[in-house]
C-alpha cells in the first residue's frame, strides 16, 4: 500500500478543483498576483492540465506600485512557461494618478484592485476566476467555499453560498454572475512553504533577505523601491537586511529584519516567528473585519 503524504493529497485535491472548474466554465482566468500563493497556484494549474498548456490566461490587476522585482519575476515566469498574461490597469486610476501617498491605502487598493478587477472581468467577459486565498489566512476565511458565487455586481452574498459536499462543486450561474474558485483553500502557510521547498519552485527574490534601502514607518520597515517613494521630513533611508513575508504595493508592505537567505531558513524563521501573515500588509489594519467587508464588495 502507498501512503500519500499530506502535500500529495493537497496537490491532488487542488488539481481536481482546477479540472472541475475549467470544465464547467466558458471563459476562465487565473488571478495572478506574483506572490508565493499565486506562484504555487500556477504550478498546480500547470500540473492539472499537463501535458497540455495552461488552457486559460493569467490576469494581473496591477496598481503600478508593485516592487520592480515582482514585475521582472512575473515577466520571466510568463516567458519561460509560454503563458498568456493579461495586465489590467484601471484607466481612471491612471488618469487621476491614484497613489497610496495622496489617496490613502484604502482608496488606493479599492480603486486599483477592487474596481480594476471588476472592470477587467467585465471587459473580458470572464465567468470564472481562480484565486489563491487560503482558509487559514483569517478567521472569516475559514468558512469560505471553494467555489464562491459572485452576483452580476460582483458582490459576495453570504446567503447565496452553496453547500459543498464530497468533491462535488456546483459551478452553475445565471448570465452575468461569476464564480471565484480557490484551489488552495485547504493549504496552510506552512504547506505553501513546504511545497515550494520540496518542488523547488522559483519565487520572487524579495522573500529572501538582502540588504535593502528602508525607512521605518508605524513600526514597519518600508522599502524605498523607486524614486516615487515620498519621504517624510527627517526620514533617511538606511540599508538593512530585510525580507518580505507577503508582497503587495511597496509603499504599503512592511519588511521584517532577517538574515534568512535560503528556503529552509525562511521556513525556520516562519516556524518560530511571532507575527502572523497579514501583519505585514497595512490594508488590514484600517478597520476590524475589513477583509470581510472587502470580500462583500468584490475584493478577492
Amino acid at each position: 500500500m502507498t501512503t500519500l503524504t499530506h502535500l500529495q493529497r493537497l496537490e491532488a485535491e487542488s488539481i481536481q478543483i482546477f479540472r472541475e472548474a475549467f470544465s464547467e466554465s466558458e471563459r476562465p482566468v487565473m488571478l495572478y498576483s506574483v506572490g508565493k500563493d499565486s506562484t504555487v497556484m500556477l504550478h498546480l494549474a500547470m500540473k492539472a492540465f499537463a501535458p497540455s498548456k495552461l488552457p486559460f490566461p493569467l490576469l494581473h490587476v496591477d496598481t503600478t506600485w508593485k516592487f520592480q522585482a515582482m514585475y521582472e519575476f512575473r515577466d520571466r515566469v510568463v516567458r519561460d512557461n509560454g503563458l498568456e498574461l493579461i495586465e489590467y490597469h484601471n484607466p481612471e486610476c491612471i488618469e487621476k494618478d491614484i497613489n497610496p501617498f495622496d489617496h490613502g491605502t484604502s482608496l488606493h487598493v479599492d480603486l486599483w484592485k477592487t474596481e480594476g478587477l471588476k472592470q477587467a472581468v467585465e471587459k473580458y467577459g470572464f465567468d470564472l476566476g481562480f484565486g489563491g486565498a487560503r482558509r487559514d489566512e483569517e478567521k472569516s476565511r475559514a468558512k469560505e467555499r471553494v467555489f464562491s458565487l459572485r452576483s452580476a455586481q460582483h458582490r459576495w452574498d453570504p446567503k447565496q453560498q452553496r453547500p459543498e459536499l464530497w468533491h462535488l462543486y456546483n459551478a452553475r450561474k445565471a448570465p452575468g454572475e461569476s464564480v471565484r474558485v480557490f484551489p488552495l483553500s485547504n493549504w496552510t502557510e506552512l504547506d505553501i512553504w513546504q511545497y515550494i521547498y520540496s518542488e523547488q519552485i522559483p519565487i520572487v527574490p524579495l522573500y529572501f533577505s538582502a540588504p535593502r534601502p528602508v525607512v521605518k514607518r508605524d513600526g514597519l520597515w518600508i522599502m524605498v523601491d523607486d524614486e516615487r517613494m515620498r519621504l517624510e521630513p527627517g526620514e533617511e533611508p538606511e540599508i538593512r537586511n530585510v525580507r518580505f513575508r507577503t508582497l503587495g504595493c511597496y509603499p504599503l508592505t512592511g519588511a521584517i529584519e532577517s538574515d534568512a537567505t535560503t528556503l529552509p531558513e525562511i521556513i525556520r524563521e516562519m516556524l518560530i516567528t511571532t507575527t502572523s501573515e497579514r501583519m505585514g500588509r497595512t490594508v488590514d489594519h484600517e478597520s476590524a473585519g475589513s477583509l470581510e467587508k472587502k470580500k462583500q464588495e468584490g475584493h478577492f
Partner: peptide, 27 residues
C-alpha cells in the same frame, strides 16, 4: 467569533480549521 458573524447576517455553517503535529496534518 460566531456572535459577530450572526450580527453580520453571515450564514453560520461549516468552518474548516487546520493544525498539524510532527506526524500528521489535520483538517
Amino acid at each position: 467569533g460566531l456572535a459577530a458573524e450572526r450580527e453580520q447576517g453571515i450564514t453560520i455553517d461549516v468552518a474548516y480549521r487546520f493544525f498539524s503535529t510532527e506526524r500528521s496534518k489535520f483538517i
